[in-house]
């Protein structure tokens, strides 16, 4: 009962938020919250550190931009196309990387993502250093004009809630149960008859797909797909967001993403603009040293203790 009340409160907050804050910032927060949550599925619940998730985020952004701007697809279909592209890319990268563990897995995903990045630099449709600009926002089902920031916000909110829903369900599903068992003890899961590589691959593909959904949506919000989205900095940033918020918690990555995005936005316009990277680094160090479970993880642990 309490849980439903908390969800209702959260939803209300999300619905009234654009009246209180700048909608474009809120949409950016939502997209990154979804991206970090997707990343958390593979790291927090699958125990696999992917260092190449920017390829799915950025790749979907380009494909969506191209589909809407050049092919003239409607916005929803454009986002779906980008998401599907991330899924296919996720399958390809996953098949190659999933057989390795730990640092080797991270290195293979990084290497493959860098290859994708160079393809984006070289190929014409991405606009190279300039990025793919002027992606029209279009309409939602031909009814609502999305060039209005508030309308766009509610569209993005809907897309992101859908994405969160898929992740939350996957975590708390029969599949999620096996995935957590594999994260906890791989050889034991094998000895119980589970073909662990297939579970990891499915988790990876779901994660890549939702990361793609986030990137696709972001490209429509900003009407821009750029190399920044596909750069390895982005892969690192999502790790930071997830760890800061709380690895392996449902809400942690979203909290971490909101914090990082808001901080970046506030700082970059102020006198500390040049110091953003340093401040992010400091936050990361403090997080790793002082609260390893992340913000939400530590809160949960504290709550559990006070109840016992």
């Amino acid at each position: 009962m309490k849980k439903y009340l908390a969800y209702a409160l959260l939803l209300t907050l999300l619905l009234v938020a654009p009246l209180l804050f700048y909608p474009v910032l809120l949409m950016k927060v939502l997209c990154f919250a979804l991206f970090a949550s997707a990343f958390n599925l593979i790291l927090g619940y699958g125990g696999l550190l992917s260092f190449g998730h920017a390829a799915f985020f950025g790749g979907a952004a380009y494909v969506t931009g191209h589909a809407i701007k050049v092919w003239g697809l409607p916005t929803e279909l454009g986002i779906l196309t980008g998401t599907a592209a991330a899924m296919v890319l996720g399958l390809l990268v996953g098949v190659l990387a999933i057989r390795r563990q730990g640092i080797y897995f991270a290195m293979i995903t990084l290497a493959l993502a860098q290859m994708v990045y160079f393809v984006f630099i070289r190929s014409g449709f991405t606009g190279g250093e300039n990025g793919l600009q002027g992606i029209p926002r279009g309409t939602f089902l031909g009814l609502v004009d999305l060039s209005n920031d508030r309308a766009m916000y509610y569209f993005v909110l809907g897309v992101c809630l859908l994405g969160f829903g898929v992740i939350a369900r996957a975590v708390h599903s029969p599949f999620g149960q096996v995935l957590r068992a594999i994260r906890d003890n791989e050889p034991r899961a094998t000895s119980l008859g589970y073909n662990i590589d297939r579970y990891k691959l499915l988790a990876f593909v779901i994660s890549a797909t939702i990361a793609g959904l986030a990137g696709a949506t972001k490209s429509v919000v900003f009407q821009l797909a750029s190399l920044t989205d596909a750069h390895w900095h982005m892969s690192g940033e999502v790790v930071l967001m997830t760890l800061l918020g709380g690895l392996g918690t449902i809400f942690g990555p979203a909290v971490g993403a909101s914090l990082i995005v808001t901080l970046q936005n506030t700082l970059s316009s102020g006198p500390l603009g040049a110091w953003v990277t340093v401040i992010m680094g400091l936050i990361f160090i403090i997080c790793v040293l002082a609260f390893r479970k992340g913000i939400v993880g530590e809160l949960q642990a504290a709550l559990r203790k006070s109840f016992n």
């Binding site: 996957a170 708390h172 599903s173 029969p174 599949f175 096996v178 119980l192 297939r198 499915l202 779901i206």
Partner: peptide, 22 residues
């Protein structure tokens, strides 16, 4: 213990099904 029993249900890849189905 349930993880060991779970495979027999044949739903172990079903990421859209509720955990309560277990």
């Amino acid at each position: 213990v349930r993880v060991a029993l779970q495979r027999q249900l044949g739903t172990s890849f079903h990421f859209w099904r509720a955990e309560s189905s277990l």
